[in-house]
Structure formats: C-alpha cells, structure tokens
Design a protein around this nucleic acid. Structure first.
Length: 262
DNA sequence: AATCCTATCAACCGCACTTCG
DNA sequence: ACGAAGTGCGGTTGATAGGAT
C-alpha cells in the first residue's frame, strides 16, 4: 500500500462516520455541493463537501431522495401495473424496472414489491416466485388493476402508457359479448363480480394485433382460468388450473378479490 | 391513556463489477 | 496485468407513524 493510501485510511479512521437519518443541514450541503460540482466521485465528494458520510451514503441520499426529479408519494395504479408486468419479465432487477417509471427509484419499487406484493403471496400461502403466484398476478391481479384504472378513467377507453409496446401492450376492456368462442356454456364466467371480462391486446413484432381474453370460472370453489388466443389459435383453448397440485391451496375467488381490494 | 402490532420506507450492508493508477 | 478504490445493485434492517386493542 503506498503512502497516499495509508494516509487516506488513517484519515478515514480518524474521521467519525455519521450514520442514520440525514439532517436538513446535511441535505443542504449535499445539494449545494452537487449543484456546483455535479454528481459522481462520491467518496471524494463526501470529503470535499465536508460531510461525515460515506460516499455510498451520499450517493444513495441523492439518488433516492434529493434528486430534483424524484417523485414521492403513493404508487399509482398505472405504476403498479407497470411494476407487475416488468417484474414478470425481468424479476428483481429493480434498477431496470425503475428506468421505466420516471421519478421512481429502484429502492421505492423494491419496497413496494416487498411490502405489497410479497405480503399478498404470504396471505395466499404460496411462494412469491412460484408459478402459482405468478399466474395469480398475471391472470387476476393485473386484469383487476387494468379494470380499476379503466374505472378511474371513464373518459379514456383505451389506456396507453409511456412505455414501448414491446413491454406493455395497449390495454382495453371488452365485455363478455365480445367473447364469442366460449364453448363451456355450463360454466359461469367473468373476471369480476360485475361479470365483465378483461382483454389485453398487443401488437406483435410485425404489427399484427394479438388479443388475449381472460376468463375466470368459479366452479365448486375452485379457481380455473381460461385463456383464449383469438388470433393465432382461435379454436385453441388453454386451460390453467391454479392450486392444482396442492388441495390446501384451493381457494375461493371471492377471497382473492377481497385480498386484492386492499 | 398506554401498550402492542403492523406497515412503510429511508438507510445500511455485502457483494460484484468497473475504473483507475 | 494487478490491486485498490469507486460505483451500483439487490437484500435486509431498523426507526417510526398510525391503527388496534
């Protein structure tokens, strides 16, 4: 180790490192310093600005809280929808997910996932990474969110997000009458108690409209899901039975709705 | 009013990767 | 090419506010 590094280490040992919540004065110093010198070089920034914080701590404070374009407050329904869809694609890559939610930090998204989504997985007694729970998100939670978004925006029949269509499709509601190939006439259908169904449509890579119609059938207190692929497989109906492997996991759809309400 | 419980989120930690000298 | 420093990411912790009892 050279002399300079030795001296730096001695300095760091001498300097007490402050931890815990940031004070208003510290925030002011950090903002003021970055406004004059810019971001980066966090370790030297900390020293030069006269903060008794680690470089990491300064970086985190700036990126997660002090940055001008950081948005605070409740995660909106649209943002929840994006998080769920992006997480199903990328998993726990929070920073990558955060790139598509302007003003939201990876930390905030991570917290949302852990406190809201994982909580529901726990309530449903299944692993958050299990296929069962992923299906629950895909076929129940996401359509439910779409419906709530739609209900909150009566003037906008088609929801568009600011994300590329490659990631999130255009989403629109369809009522049951538009679903014309349900051969199970003896089954009750409907995603919601109001007996409406949700369709998610998207453009594929060659610009062709692809639509998926999700129908939930509540039969004998068991939850079944049917997915109709209207374009490529008009006559093909894939059925997915959730909780099939473990009868303890069979649950009433009303219970799930009540969970999703919160 | 006091205590306990739960949810939330800012902050920290450890690790991996990148940059620099 | 190598080692140290710097940076970024995901996982975890702990303080605290608010609700329940």
């Amino acid at each position: 180790m050279d002399k300079i590094h030795q001296e730096n280490n001695i300095d760091e040992e001498k300097m007490e490192v402050r931890r815990g919540p940031w004070s208003v004065e510290e925030d002011f110093i950090l903002i003021n310093y970055i406004s004059h010198h810019g971001e980066g070089r966090w370790n030297s920034l900390s020293r030069c600005a006269g903060l008794k914080r680690t470089g990491k701590s300064c970086r985190l404070r700036w990126l997660n809280y002090l940055r001008p374009n950081v948005r605070h407050g409740n995660i909106t329904l649209e943002e929840q929808l994006l998080i769920l869809q992006l997480h199903s694609r990328w998993g726990n890559r929070w920073s990558k997910i955060a790139e598509h939610l302007p003003g939201r930090t990876d930390n905030e998204i991570k917290n949302y996932w852990r406190t809201r989504v994982q909580k529901h997985a726990k309530q449903l007694k299944c692993d958050v990474n299990s296929k069962q729970f992923q299906d629950t998100l895909r076929y129940l939670w996401i359509p439910r969110l779409v419906e709530r978004i739609q209900a909150s925006k009566p003037q906008q029949p088609v929801l568009r997000t600011d994300i590329s269509t490659e990631l999130v499709p255009d989403i629109q509601l369809m009522n049951n009458s538009s679903s014309n190939n349900n051969n199970n006439s003896n089954l009750r259908t409907g995603v919601t108690p109001e007996n409406s169904s949700v369709a998610v449509s998207s453009e594929n890579s060659i610009g062709t409209q692809v639509s998926h119609n999700y129908q939930v059938i509540n039969q004998s207190d068991q939850l079944w899901l049917f997915e109709d692929f209207h374009e490529q497989a008009m006559d093909q109906q894939n059925s997915i039975k959730l909780w099939m492997d473990n009868t303890d996991n069979l649950c009433n759809i009303e219970d799930i709705w009540s969970l999703l309400e919160h």
